[in-house]
Nucleic acid binder design. Structure first.
Length: 322
RNA sequence: GGUGCCAUAGCUCAGUUGGUAGAGCAACGGACUGAAAAUCCGUGUGUCCCUAGUUCGAUUCUUGGUGGCACCA
């Protein structure tokens, strides 16, 4: 995407601020963001594509009831597992919520690690129609029956531009592009504007970091803790719904293999740890290419002090630039 | 103590009729616009146990060690 206004984050042109605390899973976002939210007298907007769902609190390391009682959280445990959701819906929901919250808050805290959801808020997503369920199923049937070739061939004819850009081995991308072409009669690429939406508030993004070894050992320990807290029982409850996309999630998909009898429990737990580590790495890779992100090393202590110095964000927020 | 087998990547192991080596898994790097904790792509990271020979050249053959396993005492 093109960045229209590189400096938009550093020039505080509005008195309203969205403070986004992001970082890889297991870094310590939840606890820190509660402190920060308290400091700014702000609720927390969660930016986590799995904590959104009901019933996944242990496996997604959602805020505990105690944490939830300290600060008002939005988008935690609000969706049924069967409900359709997307980064685009999230953009709509959050933008609507923010326009209310900013009426009586100057700084709102958002926290989470779902990369595309973060970008949906900070950069926006293009207006692309939602796919009709029947069409989606038809194309998926074709895919399972005959593979990706016929889908690629249709896309090549209907949208040669995107065909030249897309990862042709990634069936999700190829299929979705064709869905759009067939549904709208336009090319998928015509919907991709490659622009960043300008928001009527400042966006300050802070990534929490640690050295790799510490992050991994925190992740490994957290998985052991989840098992002690009853992750297996949580997964067992969800087992009948295991084919839902919302349950194609680290922590559950591995335990389903155990419940299927394919893996031993110990192996499944090792896989949860491994897949969580891999996920954290993908998050770090994604954040790496965003030049607007400030970095805060979790070995340092006073986050608020650092924040005000590094970003120019004032806790009292009285000093917008002209 | 004796005999036999083994020693190669982080792990499990291939392999080189003598020309300094490759698979799986792991690890690492990357992509990403309505399923994104999803999905997809790329990369070999090595004192081939040590030592002394033979040889133009030894990870490969020979000697002697060291470590492991098995059997016999």
């Amino acid at each position: 995407m093109m960045i229209n206004d590189v400096n938009s984050h550093s020039i505080l042109s509005s008195r309203k601020n969205l403070l986004v605390i992001l970082g890889p899973t297991g870094i310590g976002k939840t606890e820190l963001s509660i402190q920060v939210a308290n400091h700014f007298q702000s609720p927390i907007i969660s930016c986590d594509s799995r904590q959104l769902y009901k019933g996944l609190s242990i496996g997604t390391a959602a805020p505990t009831p105690e944490q939830l009682s300290k600060v008002k959280h939005f988008f935690i445990g609000t969706l049924e597992l069967t409900e359709y959701y997307s980064a685009s819906r999230y953009e709509e929901d959050v933008m609507a919520l923010l326009s209310k919250l900013f009426l009586d808050h100057d700084t709102i805290v958002m926290t989470g690690g779902s990369m595309m959801y973060i970008d949906a808020i900070c950069k926006g997503i293009d207006e692309i129609p939602t796919i009709d369920e029947k069409l989606r199923q038809d194309i998926f049937k074709l895919y399972t029956k005959e593979g990706l070739d016929p889908i690629r061939n249709q896309l090549k004819i209907l949208d040669p531009v995107f065909y030249g850009q897309v990862d042709l081995k990634n069936h999700k991308r190829v299929i979705h592009a064709l869905e759009i072409c067939l549904m709208t009669g336009k090319t998928y690429s015509s919907f991709r504007t490659n622009t960043i939406k300008k928001r009527p508030f400042n966006i300050i993004k802070v990534e929490l970091t640690r050295n790799r070894e510490d992050l991994y050992s925190r992740i490994n320990k957290r998985v052991d803790l989840m098992m002690e807290e009853g992750l297996l029982e949580e997964a067992r409850k969800m087992y009948p719904l295991r084919h839902l996309n919302s349950l194609n999630t680290v922590g559950y998909k591995e335990l389903f293999k155990y419940l299927d009898g394919e893996w031993t429990l110990d192996f499944a737990i090792e896989k949860i740890k491994q897949n969580t580590r891999i996920y954290s790495r993908k998050q770090i890779t994604w954040f790496k290419k965003d030049p607007e992100i400030y970095k805060f090393n979790m070995e340092n202590t006073d986050f608020i002090f650092w924040l005000e110095n590094a970003t120019g964000l004032r806790s009292l927020n009285i000093s917008p630039l002209p």
